[in-house]
Design a protein around this nucleic acid. Sequence first.
DNA 1: CTAAATGCAAAATTTTTGCAGTCCC
DNA 2: GGGACTGCAAAAATTTTGCATTTAG
Lengths: 158, 158
Amino acid sequence: MSENLAPDSSLQQQMETFEETCRTADLKLTHQRLEIYRELARATDHPSAETLHTRLQKSLPTLSLDTVYRTLATFEQHHLVKKVQTVDSQAHFEAQMSQHHHVICDSCKEIMDFHWNSFDSTPLPEDLRQWGAIRNKNVTIHGTCRKCQDVKAGKKPA
Amino acid sequence: MSENLAPDSSLQQQMETFEETCRTADLKLTHQRLEIYRELARATDHPSAETLHTRLQKSLPTLSLDTVYRTLATFEQHHLVKKVQTVDSQAHFEAQMSQHHHVICDSCKEIMDFHWNSFDSTPLPEDLRQWGAIRNKNVTIHGTCRKCQDVKAGKKPA
DNA sequence: CTAAATGCAAAATTTTTGCAGTCCC
DNA sequence: GGGACTGCAAAAATTTTGCATTTAG
């Protein structure tokens, strides 16, 4: 709970930063861009373009899927969003740009963020230094989330 | 150099393990499967289905792309190969099943393996324990490889 | 006003599937 | 010989593109 203080104001803050970045980059602040960004920033589940499109039907009934794709690509170029590395056929996106890592449930495919400061500050192994210029390092964890474990347990009791 | 001893014999060993696994799993050892697996096991670059298909044209001129896809999917189900997590549109594969991590060059897209034993034995952060059952943890590093750095340096000195 | 962004439709890319013939066990 | 596997062709799924129209700045 304590980590969840004032989520709205932080979203609002994120929107302001977003608008600021768009102005600086000469990206027009269209209704579509604002809504797409807000929807992604609000999401915690790393949605695909199609999922975003579906969610935005209510607020933007005429929004087309190709605009979602185009917009996400533009945002990505301007480092406003990132594609999430997955094994999925659909690309997944996130607006969370600060350092974090992912846990993926192989059963329900849910992707969650987590933080790991001690890892972040650990130096890389020696032999990697000569590989080139390293920009970032991230951990991905795979497993089965509590929810899916419980479902399985319910179906096949021990 | 010392780590590179007898690469052929290790490929041969890997082929034997592969055949063994197929027999146990009642997977027929077809010419195609053997060649696809061998090609992937030999590769160090995490090729896509299409790349594998191209490389196999010489040894299997009639091999179809859909068989490559189907075969890789079968292998994956039997834990003989893994899909590599990327941000690419095409899926990439590897036959290397033991614990390792990836460095990806954002410029040339090359994916290389590396090992990091001290990371492997580091316990996960506390708050992840309650997430569910964790199967594995892997690091992905992004950056620009030496080769691409040099190319850039050559083109835009200073 | 004007260049950039959108929506539509059509295409391109990547992957999957149905079916008839082929091949391993 | 029989069921699994393959190749072909066609479809499905995902993403991209050309162009006319609309819109932000």
